[in-house]
Design a protein around this nucleic acid. Structure first.
Lengths: 193, 193
DNA sequence: TAGCTTACTTACTAGTAGGTAAGTAAGTCA
DNA sequence: TGACTTACTTACCTACTAGTAAGTAAGCTA
């Protein structure tokens, strides 16, 4: 096995990279083992060696995506102190994904939710929980410091923020028009400040 | 052929009813001819008699859904005069769909956009155009009458309204929690009035 | 160096996908 | 009454789906 810290990227990692992009563009039901295997230049059986089933590949995909998101939120917490700026930085994560002509992985999987294996459903819900909890914290901070306002509970307001960003992403990607997400973000921030 | 105005619903109509529900729940790529045919009690070949290809069935689906939406908007225009109440009635359409545990047909298809046949892509875009245009009119009316306010163009604000409702629907359906859509609607209306 | 592990390939399976050709029963119409 | 149309069914096709069994080359390890 190759060392983790050298320049060579393992087959499993490359499979996750390719599968992630394909799922973000086409959806989980629009991607096959053959699609992923062909693109990284191995057989389907090699993919099954690393991920026993498509459900397992899907779980690994969501796990890695969620971990990366969590790291990005942590990074914001360390870089930014101002609550409104944190929300703005949060929206920038979404915008960066959209600029690659991709939908949020978990937003896409939310659409296909009813067709997903149960472990994948739980993993998707965990992703949204993580985001809600982090946003809730920022909204509480902002309200305390007088830089953010919202009606109802902070949890509720956090859910509305996520809904707006995911929806704007969905529609903006279809039109290949990131400006729509920027407009929604602007209105969201205006409403909260 | 059965008369259009008697109680018997044609096979084509029943196929559209079933396919619509299945696509709203599972997505276009999560539904097969066999699924639809089995549920209405005919063979796949009978379905192919009415809709030559899956793409054609999809187009018919979007066409009927868009026409029904257009009729609902027309109905609002005749029933309601107050602009904020029109927006509220508009949001109720979405809520009624969500209460059946369904996603907006075209919101679902927006997620799968990249995998759809080109004629279906165009039909989905037309659905959103129709909605944007109607909302734009209501927002202009509200601004003129002093009952609604929005920053930027009315068209832009209309896009944000649709994005928010579609996104809230996506997330709320996953959680089986229509309250999330109601919360997003509430915040949207607060922002506009 | 013998045995084991890793990371595959080749060749296959059963099931499902969309789609089609040919036939048929029932009804319409000149 | 014979030709035609509608609304199907049966039986099939090819392509693709996820998944598997068996084999192999390379490297690591006692």
């Amino acid at each position: 096995m190759k060392a983790v810290d050298d320049a060579v990227i393992s087959t499993a990692e490359r499979a996750l990279d390719v599968a992630e992009r394909l799922v973000q563009v086409r959806g989980f039901n629009g991607v096959s083992y053959a699609d992923v295997a062909t693109e990284i230049g191995v057989t389907k059986a090699a993919l099954h060696y690393h991920f026993a089933s498509k459900a397992e590949l899907g779980e690994a995909l969501i796990g890695r995506y969620t971990a990366r998101f969590a790291a990005a939120l942590d990074d914001i917490d360390h870089r930014v102190t101002d609550a409104p700026e944190k929300i703005s930085a949060y929206a920038t994560i979404y915008l960066d994904v959209l600029r690659q002509q991709r939908m949020c992985l978990c937003g896409m999987l939310a659409a296909e939710y009813q067709t997903l294996p149960v472990p994948m459903q739980h993993a998707v819900v965990r992703f949204f929980d993580l985001n809600e909890t982090w946003l809730e914290g920022v909204l509480v901070q902002g309200r305390r410091e007088g830089t953010l306002r919202h009606c109802g509970s902070a949890r509720n307001a956090a859910q509305v923020v996520i809904s707006t960003l995911e929806g704007a992403m969905l529609v903006a990607r279809m039109h290949d028009d990131p400006a729509r997400l920027e407009a929604a973000t602007g209105q969201l921030l205006a409403e909260l400040t």
